[in-house]
């Protein structure tokens, strides 16, 4: 198969089949927390996609060129989380200084991303799946897009359930959001088996 076709399949399968929040339980906290309105969903989605690609671009070479040859692969967790934390900090500082307009709209989401398990999750899973560098980068990009997509749908649906007066008392607040997520993930299950 041609390379472009392979990359296309990676992205589509990460967005629809292996969607991080709705099919793999990664990044649920921001998925539930930042999906209140479409604007913040957009900001969070872009920021997460950006950091995912950047983090994978840095952690993949470190694992393959530094940790593996030196036989210290067990330090993966410690090294990766510190790299992500430092990276997010640098991106925030850089954005604040040189792109104030972008910082205004995206910067506020950046500190939340350090503890987003989707970012660490994509960095570790591309190593576990033995992907090459290009595949890893596009997997990260697809995972970010999938996260953004799920967040966007969720924000749209939550706009409709803002009036909670018709919801039974114990289900108001968090439980009804979880039920919404369950129905969404049920819909996403329809995509499973699209690629083998």
């Amino acid at each position: 198969m041609s390379h472009i076709g392979a990359i296309f399949i990676i992205i589509i399968s990460m967005v629809l089949v292996d969607n991080y929040p709705l099919a793999q339980f990664l990044g649920i906290c921001p998925f539930l927390g930042v999906s209140k309105d479409l604007d913040s969903a957009k900001g969070m989605g872009i920021a997460v996609t950006f950091v995912m690609v950047l983090a994978t671009a840095v952690t993949w070479p470190i694992q393959r060129l530094l940790l593996d040859p030196m036989g210290i692969g067990y330090l993966q967790t410690v090294v990766f989380i510190l790299i992500i934390a430092a990276l997010v900090q640098f991106v925030e500082m850089f954005m604040k200084k040189s792109m104030p307009a972008l910082y205004q709209s995206l910067g506020i989401f950046l500190p939340l991303i350090t503890t987003n398990c989707a970012v660490l999750g994509v960095c570790i899973s591309v190593i576990d799946d033995n992907l090459n560098y290009i595949e890893a980068l596009f997997t990260a990009f697809g995972a970010g897009l999938g996260f953004w997509f799920a967040l966007f749908i969720m924000a749209g649906v939550r706009g409709k359930i803002e009036d909670q007066s018709r919801i039974p008392e114990p289900f108001r607040g968090v439980p009804i959001v979880l039920i919404t997520a369950a129905i969404l993930s049920l819909a996403f299950m329809g995509f499973s088996g699209m690629f083998n």
Binding site: L22, A23, Q24, F25, F171, V174, P175, I176, L178, I179, A181, A182, I183, S185, L186, F188, M189
Partner: peptide, 9 residues
């Protein structure tokens, strides 16, 4: 996955 969300809710 959906069962997880349902049971949690």
């Amino acid at each position: 996955v959906p069962g997880g969300f349902f049971v949690y809710a």
